[in-house]
Write a protein that binds this DNA or RNA. Structure first.
Lengths: 233, 233
DNA sequence: ACCTGAACACCGTTCAAGT
DNA sequence: ACCTGAACACCGTTCAAGT
């Protein structure tokens, strides 16, 4: 069985199998031999479709980026940019949370990945339409990505170990044992993400008021359009 | 030379050599054999001092965390918490930027790493002293870490490739070629970090006013103590 | 206690050979 | 064009042996 008349592999099939493997067993479980076996071929076959293993993992990461919803940037009023950013951030985080093991790859800059670049491009375009100067629009895309990928990667939930004896209260007087319970940790992640996202958007709205809204054709000067509730408690 | 009378290795010596190797050639360059060779011993010797390779990399990451300045949380007025958070964030980012290759390890939650936990503990304690409820103080420590590690990890500067043909303007209409120049990229990282940090702190100050300052013994109700300049442009 | 060499079960990648 | 087995130069880790 040297060359079959119909190709056994395709880039899509490889990415699909790699994604499943990453999700099920983590990044370390992906070896070219193991992945090939999962696809019923021998190891070197993969090199007919990808230049190397890193390119496969990049494609897996990009498939996740492709699932990020970008529709809010086209559909809504450009002046609702905080609401659009909010919804986008939530969708982005949801996509990453569904595939936590690939986040380390995805977090390392957009690189050459098309879907990652498409995301960056959409945010930038929407911020420019909202009236932000080009430089600031770029910053916003970057800083939002920092926060979102950082939260998906450095989650409290994954960071701690389920061994209570590992954290001596004498060493960390403020880190109560309560933080170390598994379900409490997930609460921390949710709360920290929501709190941080709200702060980020409120802070950006403040900068918008001070630099963009004043002196442009923008309708009202006060309150901008902070759609997301500024405080929920 | 089976066992020398004076040990050839120590945890510190191993961590030092591993740090140097990571900084010079990246994470992939660190193999137990290579690291051992650098130290003048054979591969398996390392296992007398660390349980496995991951523990070595954890120790390298923790050594970076240990360089983060925490003095601002003890020295300054607790009500100056935004200024303290700001200075801490800058110091944290500087420490990570000096050792970019280990950030992926460090970003994956504080885990068992003592210095990482000490950082989390210091921030939490300072926020509680500033009057934040325990839950919010935890969130602040987590969300700041998200942003800082995210910015160190997903930097624009490292994310792009120095091959102009890789980015067809037809595919990404808003991503101007100017963004793709190496020095421009570093500007983006700096600007995005500063803009994001300012937004984060402004937004948190807003939440502080609305939830903490009102109804407590806090001195003034308006303005809190936003030391960092709210706008520099 | 702390180092060694040998060994085990793996890796990523290249390449000539097959159709 | 697309798959194969063989081969190369590596891995992380275990373990008996040495002092």
């Amino acid at each position: 069985m040297a060359r079959p008349r119909k190709p056994l592999l395709s880039r899509d099939r490889i990415v699909e199998a790699a994604s499943a493997l990453v999700d099920a067993e983590g990044l370390d479980a992906v070896s070219t031999r193991r992945l090939a076996a999962e696809l019923g071929v021998s190891g070197p076959s993969l090199y007919n479709h990808f230049r190397n293993k890193d390119e496969i993992l990049d494609a897996v990461a990009d498939a996740v980026s492709a699932q990020v919803d970008l529709s809010m940037f086209e559909e809504s009023d450009p002046r609702d940019w905080p609401a659009a950013l909010h919804d986008w951030a939530v969708s982005y985080r949801a996509a990453l949370s569904a595939h936590p093991h690939i986040v380390p790859v995805l977090a390392q800059g957009p690189g050459r990945r098309p879907a990652g670049l498409r995301v960056a491009d959409a945010v930038f375009g929407a911020m420019v339409r909202a009236g932000w100067p080009h430089a600031q629009a770029t910053y916003i895309g970057a800083l939002m990505r920092y926060f979102i990928t950082g939260s998906a990667l450095g989650s409290f939930a994954r960071g701690f170990v389920d061994d209570e004896t590992a954290y001596d209260p004498a060493d960390y007087p403020h880190l109560g044992q309560a933080h170390l319970l598994a379900d409490r940790r997930q609460q921390v992640d949710e709360g920290a993400f929501e709190t941080g996202l709200r702060a980020l958007l409120d802070g950006l709205a403040l900068q918008y008021e001070q630099t963009v809204a004043t002196g442009t054709a923008s309708s009202g000067t006060a309150g901008v359009t902070v759609r997301h509730s500024p405080n929920r408690s």
